[in-house]
Amino acid sequence: MAAEYEGGMSAPATPGTPTPLMTSLRVDSSLSYDRKSMPRCMCLPLDAPTWGAPHTCLTHFSAPDISLTRKLGAEFVGTFILIFAATAGPIVNQKYGGVESLIGNAACAGLAVMIVILSTGHISGAHLNPSLTIAFAVLRHFPWIQVPAYIAAQVSASICASFALKGVFHPFMSGGVTVPSVNTGQAFALEFLITFNLLFVVTAVATDTRAVGELAGIAVGATVMLNILVAGPSSGGSMNPVRTLGPAVAAGNYKSIWIYLVAPTLGAVAGAAIYTLVKLGGEGEEEVPPRPVRSFRR
């Protein structure tokens, strides 16, 4: 594949150039990490003197970076908003005799996911979910070195949001805890499957250049709503370990909590992996070169 220059001239791409996950003509509103900050080899017609002579091949060309501190701050605030909204719906539903209903609970979580992705996705990627962070790291869409920090931000935000809700709605905090109303096997299967659905969609809008990445917030928020409508009455529709962990700590209710830690993580890895297989195995696609070894040091 050649890089097109003005006047119709072209030059072969540098060997080993990785295929970009998002094209330059699209807004990178995905849930993946900021791929523009990753070092890569590119051949571009750079005319500015500060960048070098025209048509110079530059190695390790990178866009302005976002510090990890800023990313963690955005991840903390985004997760706080999500847990506060997603947990407040069921609490209000319990306190006021079912005014929210299942549809209202699903809308609280789905709308929260949508607005957080649209507002912080360009900063931190808006993971909001340790299972998503781990799944993306497993499939090399996110650096492992940042995984512990992201999970720490997500867990702490969840606990803070849950205790804020406890202070406001005490003693109705128990309404926000996700506990199964079916047997253990059924709850595990439901959480696995709905998280599989979620990560299948997330991986599509976050990593596939053919997907409509600009609508990532709407697509993911709608998937969250759909999953809660399906699994909410049975397993609580968590899909997210911190959606369960924070309220469980605040309410002191740890019933079957292992389900909500293990099943979403396995489902997330499976969903992301299956979409990756579908994306790379479709007929008529150009052969995608293997990913080069990348350094995540910035």
Score class of each variant (00 low, 15 high):
T207W: 09
T276L: 11
S29T: 03
P54V: 05
T69E: 10
A248W: 07
L229Y: 11
T87H: 02
Y275L: 00
P54Q: 04
R26V: 11
R35Q: 14
S234I: 11
L215V: 08
H122I: 10
F61S: 08
T14S: 11
D28V: 04
P290I: 03
P148W: 10
I159T: 03
V293E: 15
Y275T: 00
C57H: 06
A53S: 14
P54E: 03
G98Y: 01
Y260R: 05
G267H: 01
A2K: 13
G282H: 08
T207E: 11
Y275D: 04
V205D: 09
F169V: 08
V230F: 12
V205P: 04
S32P: 03
R243Q: 10
F76T: 01
Y260T: 06
E285P: 00
Y150N: 01
G125P: 06
M173T: 15
A206Q: 05
G97M: 10
P290F: 09
F136S: 04
G176K: 11
G121F: 12
S29W: 13
K71W: 05
P171K: 08
R297E: 12
D65K: 15
G213D: 00
T209K: 15
P130G: 00
N253E: 10
G281A: 08
H141T: 00
S119G: 09
S234M: 15
